[in-house]
Design a binder for these strands. Structure first.
Lengths: 195, 195
DNA sequence: GTCTATACACGGATAGAC
DNA sequence: GTCTATCCGTGTATAGAC
């Protein structure tokens, strides 16, 4: 993602805002603060983004796109449906460890409070992609035949929960430690061929 | 809860704010708007609450207290650990159907953006109560022996996920319909004595 | 206890120099 | 393309009459 941002000023704004929007909330971060913290003038900021809202949209698009790509490659690399679940957990935990602010911006921020018409995050590209994957695996008989709402909640619910515990500061440990045990629990709830 | 609010003005403010804070976000709801929509003057509002933040605290305390009480009675009424899980799901779904705004305010709103020092919602009274319950049941051998982080995520993750789908408007159906199938999935993931 | 009027700070955004 | 200075609206909160 960062590679795609040609413009140094835009990158500075991106890096600062994703951190501060996630930490303190969009409305608590003013243009003046962004200006002060990035060392850029308000003029420079408004030259690159026509409004504060556009900054938030840019963050939203970049962040969801990055998560989508990670998920895609994780699923594609997997040889079977059950392994893919582990890859999804692993890649989301990894991403949280590497780039907590980005994951906070994706999963924790209430975008609809300041981005008019934004889809709920569960309907954003990465999560729609996962839903389609689950649907396929149900059809193929890998996962038990169940309502999509139930299936996606049983799979994604616990994963998101753990990530949020990390974001809330409840969990200090490296999330990768939880990949295996969480996977085991999730599999039991949806996998067809119980051991 | 409403019964406890002796003061009519306070009740008006409560009813309006819990709805609008949840829907549009705390910072997007000004005193002038609250005044206009409740038919009260700003003077009356500030007579009852010394600041806007105090309104938010009042909502937070009342709402978490109500959820805590519902959870408590649900667990106490249950004869065994596994039935208690169903009761928890049921009562939370019921509450969402009856009082969506209240549940939105509890589960969806990012309190830390405007309530300095507020604990993350997973550390609020109702959720701490559930955690203690889970811990007990693990000790008693009802649930499999697993890390508390994993156990509580496998149980609460899917429940919260479904509720958030409702809050996001993805789910139109009555949540009670999902109690049974979700319960079945969750039980498989944590219950010790598989069938 | 509730009203109206108002103080005052801070928000986003723009203009125009460089 | 970035700077500084400034406009104007809206935010929370208060004062003082009733």
């Amino acid at each position: 993602m960062k590679e795609k941002i040609k413009n140094l000023t835009k990158e500075k704004i991106f890096n600062y805002c994703i951190k501060d929007f996630a930490k303190n909330g969009y409305s608590n971060v003013g243009i003046r603060k962004i200006s002060k913290e990035t060392g850029l003038s308000t003029g420079a900021i408004y030259y690159n983004f026509s409004s504060k809202e556009k900054i938030a949209w840019f963050l939203y698009d970049s962040a969801t796109e990055l998560v989508l790509n990670k998920i895609k490659t994780a699923i594609k690399k997997s040889t079977n449906g059950i392994e893919a679940i582990k890859s999804i957990i692993s890649v989301l935990f990894q991403l949280t460890e590497e780039n907590l602010h980005l994951m906070e911006y994706v999963l924790y921020v209430k975008h609809k409070d300041f981005l008019p018409g934004v889809p709920p995050i569960c309907s954003s590209k990465p999560f729609e992609y996962i839903k389609r994957f689950i649907k396929t695996k149900i059809k193929e008989g890998v996962f038990e035949d169940m309502d999509m709402v139930i299936a996606s909640s049983l799979i994604m619910g616990p994963i998101i929960r753990v990530i949020q515990l990390k974001m809330d500061g409840i969990l200090k440990e490296d999330l990768n430690k939880y990949t295996e045990p969480l996977f085991n629990g999730i599999v039991k709830s949806v996998y067809r061929n119980q051991i």
